[in-house]
């Protein structure tokens, strides 16, 4: 039979996935390199200059006007923000590309059907189409968050205006959560790309699913690890203390009861004192996550997102298999 035509060899799909998405590969590489360079610059010269300016400012703060490089401080602050938002945009970029270009356009133009009628199964096709980008997304995004963390550490404690670890943009941009979100975006884009016949719809759908999951994990994160409670006597009259991601704040009454969200909205201190006296409050409490909870929160959230990604992957593959295989067709 025809198998004798040429010696059987392996299917080489990977090189064609690279060839077909070559512009995206170049763009991705350029984006990662540019952002990595920017983050290194931020962590090095920019952070050093800002730290030095703060040092000078703090040294002469009590002695009237002094010379310090205010521009260096503002430059670090601005570029830090730009770089942070650029890293946070990566999952959306991946989801949009996956939905529109990687899968959606193939389904829309019918080239997916062309691929499925070659000598490989649709499942194999999808596996290769997802595995290679998943690897590149993990490596690229992973490098970015590592460098972002490096840039944040470079400013922490040296630059007074540097963001706290618990600032949400900083929290996401310098941890593995954003890598997991990029992978979720990749799979979500593919799932919708296979289901919707328009690449534009898949683009929007991929973005929506990614945004929705990000929002969900954002609501979930404070509750993923048990909080630390800090109690401050009311006499200090400074409000609850303890820096980090706060979950519940309020006052404790003389009977030991906790009243959450007991914020005084009055204008004067006297009115507020009366308000708290009315509640019979003796101290503030703050249930929060201190800096030591950074990694547990990051890794648990990452784990949840990876589990969701795995689930979406199973749904995507099962959908494709059910769509292209006859019910009796156990052999693929």
């Amino acid at each position: 039979m025809s198998a004798a035509l040429t010696a059987p060899t392996r299917v080489h799909l990977t090189r064609w996935v690279v060839r077909l998405h070559r512009p995206a590969l170049y763009l991705w590489t350029a984006l990662i390199l540019a952002l990595a360079a920017a983050l290194l610059w931020l962590a090095g010269p920019l952070a050093d200059a800002a730290a030095e300016a703060w040092q000078r400012y703090n040294a002469c703060a009590d002695m009237g006007p002094c010379a310090y490089d205010q521009d260096a401080i503002l430059r670090y602050k601005d570029y830090y923000e730009y770089a942070t938002y650029a890293v946070l945009a990566v999952p959306f970029l991946v989801a949009a590309w996956s939905g529109a270009s990687l899968i959606g356009r193939e389904v829309e133009n019918g080239t997916a059907r062309l691929a499925w009628t070659q000598g490989l199964s649709p499942v194999r096709w999808l596996a290769t189409k997802l595995a290679l980008p998943a690897l590149l997304v993990t490596v690229g995004t992973g490098a970015l968050v590592a460098l972002h963390r490096h840039a944040w550490v470079a400013g922490d404690g040296r630059i007074d205006t540097a963001k706290s670890w618990s600032d949400f943009a900083t929290f996401y941009a310098s941890g593995p959560v954003v890598v997991a979100l990029a992978l979720t975006g990749l799979v979500a884009g593919a799932l919708i790309g296979l289901r919707r016949a328009s690449s534009f719809g898949a683009l929007g759908g991929g973005l929506c699913v990614t945004a929705f999951l990000w929002f969900g994990i954002h609501l979930l994160i404070p509750h993923l690890w048990s909080t630390v409670t800090k109690v401050t006597p009311m006499a200090h009259n400074v409000g609850p203390s303890g820096n980090g991601i706060s979950v519940t704040q309020g006052v404790i009454t003389a009977t030991g009861a906790r009243i959450a969200d007991a914020h005084c909205t009055a204008d004067t201190t006297a009115q507020c004192q009366a308000y708290y006296a009315d509640l019979d409050a003796v101290s503030w409490f703050n249930d929060y996550h201190p800096a030591a909870h950074y990694w547990p929160l990051q890794w648990i959230a990452t784990g949840i997102l990876l589990a969701v990604t795995a689930l979406l992957t199973v749904v995507t593959f099962r959908g494709l298999r059910r769509r292209t295989t006859t019910p009796e067709g156990a052999a693929v």
Binding site: T117, S121, T324, T325
Partner: peptide
Amino acid sequence: GLTAPTGGTVTVLGTTPGAARARVGF
């Protein structure tokens, strides 16, 4: 083997369309 039937069966070259993929041009 590009789409699955809602009912009934189709056999291609003695097997399922999915299994016959390598032997069918489209």
